[in-house]
Nucleic acid binder design. Structure first.
Length: 548
RNA sequence: GUCCCGUUGGUCAAGUGGUCAAGACGUCGCCCUCUCACGGCGGAAUCAGGGGUUCGACUCCCCUACGGGAUACCA
């Protein structure tokens, strides 16, 4: 068989050679330790936390080493394409702080290693395909779907490995004439890899995350180019990541089992291997067992969900970092004020077993992040969020900016700051009682206070109220009020001798608290009144009295 | 079915032959306290099971179980 002639027959329109592309996409001029990584999503538009988790590894690796992080759209399967998906992907990732240096952007493509849409790289793939045919390492396969099915059926019956390989690969040794006839007859074909691998032999490889791996060689004559001339993932990955000079291929562990294919292809093309980093997938608890995050089943784990709830991107990033690198939390404890970019992220510290998504932990991390955030910044963040997700709150935010700043500052700047704030939706709920339109009575008066005492307490409170009292003056009045009404001035007194009192000062102030904000629990009462202003505070109490 | 990867408390996890098996979240109790938080102190809770190797195994090897993934002209 004359392979050169076959190659010409198959790809007459391809006149470039691998050397041409080699020259077109030269080695990157980067310091030796710089890493080049990429994200290669297919344009289905949906991104969840698991995708962000993986992308984050790429981003850290590249930017931490002074390298390049680029976006390539893997659109080789037109059936799955979703309108507007690329924009959605870019904007979600950017929101969470993942910045691409190169590749596909909202406005077009940037960088000199493009095109970055795989569909636009057809000629490149075909050039390398032609090259493989010339070397006798690829061949056209004219088998129909039915024929492949039949082969599989046969294999299953005999208990042999399913697939197209060895003597099952009918088209492998097709004579030149037969190929020509098929071609002239317009018969569609796929281009297959002529595997020389032996599954009984293992090869060794070092994975950036998992370390030493030993896997059987690929023996399948996998499809390189589909009937439409577009490559499969396997072939596109090899060509693209070589020509784009990717140094680290970070991808989910679901790719581990096709690693032998990729290694065989790099080998056949005599190209150097990148460093593979196979991440674990993020899991979710379903009933008794763990499950991989899925697009269909877990809409609450989509990035847009966290965004709409108003989680701060920093919080999400920080959470991801804690599950990504086991030593991050320790580092954070030792460096509470350093930007997270200062942390030395390594793939070696990544776990290789499936990680369960933990909302409690995210919330905790978020509290720590928000408590360090200046009030102005927090206000701005909330405001931008309302513009996008709670438009009706917009005027409230602009009209009450000063008050909101005071509310957000409440008890957040001392030695032991409160950590009440988690995400926008929750924050608004937490402070909503300040605004009459959102004020509602949620809790009931404490059981320790007799129904008949409530009104007198509130009336006495109003009577003695002086807005200019400082915190301690104010509280000593509450104490007096309590004693006058038969309640202990200190909870301890009540606990020691419960028979002497109706209740204690805590119960009395809860009555006031409920009248004032409709809740039995809140930050410091005095401070809240100062922020609310005298008029609003007194109106609330009067209303509470009236409703009794 | 076959192949690959994995398995330390409820969760995330340190750990690479000798530790009373870190730490964080969560949970429980106590303290602080006008409520709730915050903070402090303390508790419960882990090496999947079975065989080896070794003076000694969470750590190395084998088997089993369980979980996950792959098995496409999808990525």
């Amino acid at each position: 068989m004359n392979y050169t002639a076959l190659a010409e027959m198959l790809f007459p329109h391809i006149d470039k050679t691998p050397e041409d592309y080699e020259a077109l996409y030269p080695k990157r001029q980067l310091p030796p330790e710089a890493k080049v990584t990429r994200l290669g999503p297919s344009p289905t538009g949906f991104i969840h936390l698991g995708n962000l988790y993986g992308a984050f590894v790429d981003e850290r690796l590249a930017h931490q080493s002074g390298g390049t992080f680029f976006l390539r759209i893997e659109d080789t399967d037109e059936k799955r394409e979703v309108e507007g998906a690329v924009e959605a992907i870019i904007s979600s990732l950017e929101y969470f702080g993942l910045r691409f240096d190169e590749g596909v952007t909202i406005h077009g493509e940037t960088g000199s290693y493009g095109p970055y849409y795989q569909r636009r790289r057809e000629a490149i793939y075909q050039c390398y395909a032609k090259h493989l045919v010339e070397k006798g390492l690829a061949y056209p396969c004219f088998c129909t779907e039915e024929e492949i099915q039949a082969i599989r059926g046969q294999q299953e019956k005999k208990g042999e490995n399913p697939g197209y390989y060895g003597h099952f690969a009918k088209c492998r040794e097709l004579k030149s004439d037969a190929v020509r006839r098929n071609l002239e007859g317009g018969k569609p074909f796929v281009l297959r890899f002529r595997s020389t691998g032996d599954p009984a032999r293992n090869f060794q490889i070092i994975d950036g995350i998992r370390g030493h791996l030993s896997m059987p060689e690929n023996f399948q004559d996998v499809v390189l180019l589909k009937q439409n001339g577009i490559p499969t993932y396997h072939f596109a990955h090899v060509i693209d990541d070589y020509l784009m000079r990717t140094t680290h291929v970070v991808r989910g562990e679901e790719w581990l089992s096709s690693l032998p294919i990729h290694v065989a292809l790099f080998d056949a093309l005599e190209l150097p291997l990148p460093i593979y980093c196979h991440t674990t997938v993020l899991m979710k608890m379903e009933g008794e067992n763990k499950r991989k995050l899925s697009k269909r089943k877990d809409p609450e784990l989509s990035l847009s969900y966290y965004r709409s709830q108003g989680y701060h991107p920093k919080a999400v990033r920080e959470y991801l970092l804690t599950i990504l690198n086991s030593n991050y939390e320790e580092w954070r404890l030792a460096n509470p004020d350093s930007p997270m970019e200062d942390f030395g992220f390594t793939t070696e510290k990544m776990s290789s077993s499936g990680t369960l998504f933990d909302l409690d932990k995210l919330n905790d991390v978020s509290k720590e992040v928000l408590v360090r955030m200046p009030d102005e910044e927090l206000y701005d963040f909330l405001f931008v969020w309302t513009q996008e997700y709670r438009r009706e709150l917009g005027p409230l935010f602009t009209d009450n900016k000063n008050m909101l700043l005071r509310i957000l500052a409440m008890d957040r700047h001392g030695e032991k700051p409160r950590k009440d704030l988690v995400y926008c939706e929750q924050i608004f709920d937490f402070i909503s009682y300040f605004f009459d339109d959102y004020f509602k009575v949620e809790d009931s008066y404490p059981a320790e206070v007799a129904q008949g005492d409530i009104k007198p307490i509130l009336e006495a409170y109003i009577k003695g109220y002086d807005h200019s009292d400082d915190a301690s003056q104010w509280f000593s009045k509450i104490r007096t009020l309590s004693t006058d009404m038969g309640y202990a001035a200190k909870p301890k007194d009540y606990k020691k001798n419960p028979e002497l009192y109706k209740g204690h000062v805590g119960h009395v102030s809860t009555v006031i608290r409920i009248a004032l904000m409709g809740r039995a629990s809140s930050p410091d009462l005095w401070e809240i009144q100062q922020i609310m202003g005298e008029t609003r505070a007194m109106t609330r109490i009067n209303k509470a009295i009236a409703s009794l």
